[in-house]
Design a protein around this nucleic acid. Sequence first.
RNA 1: GCCCCGGUAGCUCAGCUGGAUAGAGCAACGGACUUCUAAUCCGUAGGCCGCAGGUUCGAGUCCUGUCCGGGGUACCA
Length: 547
Amino acid sequence: MSILDLKTQLIEGIAASLKSLDLPQDNLHLERPKSQEFGDFSCNAALILAKKAKLTPLRLAQKIKQNLDILKTVVEEITVTPPGFINFTLSKDFLRKEVHHILQVGEAYGQTSHGKGKSALVEFVSANPTGPLTVGHGRQAVLGDIISRILEWHGYDVTREYYFNNAGRQIRLLAESVYARYMGLLGETMVIPEGGYEGNYITEIAENIYNKHGSIYNKKVDDPIFKNTAVQVIFNDIKSTLSNLQIKFDEFVNEKSFYENNRINSIIDRLREQDLVFDEDGATWFATTKLGKEKNTVLIKSSGEPTYRLPDIAYHEYKMKRNFDLLVDIFGADHKDTYPDVLSALKSLGYNIDIIRVLIHQFVTLKKGGEKVKMSTRKATYVTLEDLINKVGTDVVRYFFIMRNMKSHLNFDMTLAVKESDENPVFYLQYAHARICNIIKYADAVGISYTQKSYLRLISHPSEIELIRELIRFPEVMKSALEGLEPQVITNYLQALATQFHKFYTECRVVTEDKKLSQARLALITAVKYVLANGLSVLGISQPERM
RNA sequence: GCCCCGGUAGCUCAGCUGGAUAGAGCAACGGACUUCUAAUCCGUAGGCCGCAGGUUCGAGUCCUGUCCGGGGUACCA
């Protein structure tokens, strides 16, 4: 039985008891008490329903308890404590059986079928190819990938999608910047455009063109070679960085495609039919004030060029039309004000926007030795993600970016990150895994291994029991990660599990003269190994067998 | 001005959709390797949960106000 099934059973039991007392049964849930003295689960139903039952919470709790019909083999003790909680303590027998359960299910332990037969589209990164990915993009890249993995863990068929724009003003500036460097290489005067790009990579792209073609593009600022080479080189660079982070996209969608097949005009037309589009001052506006916003929004500038919102709407309509069950958009805080326009447009066009989950993450504040660094791709005052990966490694980078709640600002101190990479919390988890692997190897060498009948009844030491208690929380944690689409709960949990394991390790020797006990403990730590490995793999972090 | 996010130990942050005595890591101090890995463990110390009201059996968590930090508020993306 999984802990999730057990919780359902307990809640059903409580509901039945409430029904027999003629009390409402909705909104029941179990909590994990902070202290073990209150057992493994507690229920606050009596506190909430006391008024309705015209009893003190304590008396009501007693009554609910009396009417409870719950298996003694699973729940060892039910207590009522002030102010009126009903507490359930799981039997040791149940806990031991759970270890067996974990060993049987193995790599699938903690999975659910919530997403079985469903598909999800996760859009993230979506940085335009104007420069290398920065540390700032890293947070979103890792967040998006791990959220995708969480969805996959629960059975979703996930498409990771990257939306980009290789046209427009920024790209024109990029091409002109490359051209300027190219002219510089030819010994001509080099005019870097106003607001152009200054990074070293621009020079490298120019050299690339020069080495291949010499001076044949002299004075040909409009030749597509500059734009094409730049975009191609930068995109390759971006993909290679992502690949170093163990991230692979399934689809790349070009904003340009929405101009080509008339989708944009069609959106304007359909919104106009509903009186949500009007013309003013030569521009075309989206009447967002009619949809509850304070200001209207420009969709087509008076120059005739659409703002990015319009293709964004077209892109999201394209997402909708592909019939996913779930659409996840991951944006930085700078999009906070713009995505509601996209959603209200989709709604007006008749789409069910309930399937969209928009996740907004706060920015990374980069620091160097305590000093704040302002990042700008244009000015090349950034630290590239690639540099960071090279310095501290993929596992550390991935872990670092999801250690914190996405709603919080992430202070990233480069100096500290490099210095502290040796004592990064990710190693704490991996060390626990490696320790287990080593014990198993040692046990193997002396001829002890666990079998299905591994004397688990011999497990009784407090730190063993605590370890199991921690272990079986895993399915709950993974469920909550799915509900909140928040990877951080997994890292918090794995830290707690590793702590409990390290504690167990110092208190209980696994391989001893006592063969039966050794087998039992071997079974226990193998279960720990599965859970650690499962958690780490969802985070996309390696599980070393030796450190 | 208006909108969004944050404010919890010296520092960096957890705190499970309102629960019981607010937690961890780092830094400080004191202990533990003859053992399956000390990248570890145990202990001590550290708090007006920004501030003030409110809601109720119960608030770090919800509401109102206020202060501080960040982001947004473009015919830029």
